[in-house]
Amino acid sequence: MLRKGLLDIFETALNRRTVFTTGVNFREVTDRKEMLKSLPVADEGTAGEKSIDVDSLIQGRGDRFPNSQIDSKRFDGVLFKDLPIINIRVSPNNTIINLTNAKGLPEIIRSCGIEGFKNTRKGTNVAAQATAITIGTKIIERGTKTARVRVQGMGPGRMSAIKGLQMAGINIVSITDNTRVSWYPPRPRKQRKL
């Protein structure tokens, strides 16, 4: 009975909903700025940033994040701190991947530009994936199979570079974000005029 009463109220409210149609006529989308404003924000290659996905986090909570035993943890018989590092430097216009040893000395470097992609094509996810696959196979030829990954910056190549490394057959132990973020940075460059 009570539920029915509530439903009735909802229904009448729905039928009487006021829809304003005059505002549409006043909108001006003649300008380029206006057009850009109405467009959806471009995806910058950070999948999962806005999604809410609680179950997977709770499920594997125990071992997801490093704890105090991190230094004694072994992966493929090698201590975590002695594993080689694959650095991925992502920017909107390019993706640079390099392999360093555990101390940080660089060994191989490869970028979308070296790979043969030029100009705007460098800054695509396809280019990043291709680069990651080539450097991944090279790393495996050198005899390294297990590595930890450190990502810096944001851009279209962020996810696809990691995926490419996995496709090349590298056993990725951990993913670290090393994006440089400051709350009190020196004054950045002026805004672009669109």
């Binding site: 999948a47 997977s56 990691i162 995926k163 996995q166 056993n171 951990s174």
Partner: peptide, 15 residues
């Protein structure tokens, strides 16, 4: 830092 479990890189990235 996030560890990759069961070779599921995408889940780690998402987290």
């Amino acid at each position: 830092t996030v560890f990759v479990q069961n070779n599921d890189v995408e889940a780690a990235c998402r987290i």
